[in-house]
Design a protein around this nucleic acid. Structure first.
Lengths: 330, 330
DNA sequence: TGCGTGATCGGAAACGCTTCCAGCGGTTGC
DNA sequence: GCAACCGCTGGAAGCGTTTCCGATCACGCA
């Protein structure tokens, strides 16, 4: 920067002010400095700048999965608003328990960011304490609904939309394929979506048959297995509610292989509106995934600007009826 | 750090050496420093450290798409090795031409990273010049096959595996659905995969009928449209080769809706081995996507360690025959 | 016993910025 | 006409590390 200052014929103090858009710099002077910087193709050293000044202009994003559509979409939305605000995104993938423990234990983002956003992943109590240690803003999206400012859907409501749709079609034996995160064995499947199933049945006066709910690790193949199980029941369901589209795709594959027709022989409904849902003609409950990332990004910006944020935002879901659901045949 | 040093009863110089694992520090002393740091829950300031020292321990990753399986998988592989090496990854999404121009013009990662890896995206000439300006190592994965150390598949070979399979099944009218990146209108579809089609036909002595190749923007819906076009031909093909699985899925949907059976009425083959391919019973040419990211990460590490790297690595692809291909009926 | 030697450790100078505190002409208000 | 101000600029003190350069000390060897 000394070079730039010299070339522009000003002091470093002025050069710094000009470069960082401070007021109290004559327009003409600023132009001169900018020109000099341009000629020398100079950019300020972030390190030095941060050392002397304040913010890091970086935010950490913690995700349990990268290659899954839902998480990647959240990330995409988030990244876009952060990038527009000239904030850099540091990506931290905590794929399994080991990663997870390591992340919260070592806190690799410590001192490196102004905020951290946790995507699609509830933060556990002990972890929260660790996170607090970082002393920065924290936002959650697509998962958490407490502790932090968050943006998410109402899982229970989404589940109701799916199951109520089946009930409306007059299905009386409805199976559920619940998915647990393979990275978190031992943790329960999405409670909201599970609870919605039970409530919907109750409200419709239908019996709850434990045999009709099967819980599997998340994934298409697991969904296929789950469907096999359901089909082998003495009295199989006439419709299936899957916790997520990917699982539903697996179920559909099993049905296809079994020679059963969808929706004539079996209705299938999922949640998410994965891009493949449209191609597979899957009835599903759509959630605005990318938007949730965007909203989370805006929250970060607001927090960084010192604004008070509302506790959380719940975005609406919407039932999309396609060809995988119909009234039962009998 | 001054606090830590004081508490451990040593100078800052020694504290620094102990914290950063330098030799010439007595084991006992080091332990004392580490303990002090632990008690104060102190971590070195990356900014200050970088200012004084050398590397930023960060690498920039540039991707044209985040929410697409292929790119997200590359990213996942890459991130995992980088993270294991305690390098932070800065994510830069250049979704469209505007983003792209902005990125290469402003070079937001300038001075912030030790290396940049470009994922699934050929770097154009002018852009390369800009990148050079950063003066850091550059690696490409899943796309580029020149200019930089790279890791990628042999697109031409992959294409051949797909088309040759159809030819082996005795198909004589084979359609091709080529996909161009919607973010780069005007740029050609994957040349290797396209060329493979032409060569395979030629080698098999089959005529090349321009009507049988349709080029569409990447995407499932586009694939569906493309298939519609192919079906409306006076003399439709008996098999279709799609540049990627997602496009193939779209094609399959069109066939399903048209009441045509796969593979009896039409064979379909894709490239990628997307997770949905298995669920859709799609014959495809598998490529190790995550591995490409991993290898790129290792290259970065090697480069950073000052090692010389081979120009590039080509990973093998493999035909996976499922239920979407069979000999033509006539 | 005297001295070279290597292992440790401390002092202090960078590293490249930001910003507080003044200083400097020129206005403005009375 | 004088003092209080104002807009702009410069000097210099940090910001928190790393590392160069010696200094110290215990040891081994002649």
């Amino acid at each position: 920067m000394a070079d730039v200052a010299r070339r522009a014929g000003v002091s470093m103090a002025t050069a710094s002010r000009a470069l960082s858009n401070h007021p109290h710099v004559a327009a003409e002077t600023r132009a001169r400095v900018l020109a000099a910087a341009e000629q020398l193709s100079y950019v300020v050293s972030p390190e030095a700048s941060r050392l002397a000044g304040g913010a890091t202009d970086r935010v950490a994003v913690v995700v349990p999965h990268i290659a899954r559509w839902f998480f990647a979409s959240l990330l995409e939305g988030l990244e876009s608003v952060l990038r527009d605000a000239d904030l850099d995104v540091l990506l931290y993938h905590v794929g399994d328990e080991a990663d997870r423990r390591r992340f919260f234990e070592r806190l690799p983002a410590r001192r490196k960011v102004d905020a951290v956003v946790v995507l699609g992943m509830p933060v556990r109590d002990g972890e929260r304490d660790r996170l607090e240690l970082m002393g920065v803003h924290i936002v959650a999206a697509g998962g958490q609904v407490e502790n932090y400012p968050y943006v998410s859907i109402d899982d229970a409501a989404a589940g109701r939309q799916a199951v109520d749709h089946l009930i409306f079609l007059k299905h009386r034996r409805i199976g559920m394929i619940a998915a647990i995160d393979p990275a978190e064995p031992g943790w329960p499947a999405n409670p909201g979506r599970t609870h919605a199933y039970e409530m919907a049945l109750t409200d419709a006066g239908l019996p709850f048959d434990p045999a009709l709910v099967v819980t599997v690790p998340w994934g298409g193949l697991s969904g296929a297995d789950a469907m096999s199980g359901l089909l082998s029941l003495r009295d199989p369901p006439t419709a299936v509610y899957a916790h997520s589209d990917e699982v539903a795709f697996g179920a559909m594959r099993t049905l296809r292989r079994a020679g059963l027709r969808i929706p004539e022989d079996m209705s299938v409904v999922g949640i998410d509106d994965h891009p493949m849902a449209e191609l597979s003609d899957l009835t599903t409950v759509a959630q605005p995934v990318r938007d949730q990332g965007v909203l989370a990004g805006r929250m970060v910006l607001a927090l960084l600007a010192g604004e008070q944020t509302a506790g959380g935002v719940t975005v609406p879901t919407r039932l999309i009826i396609r060809g995988s659901t119909a009234p039962p045949r009998r």
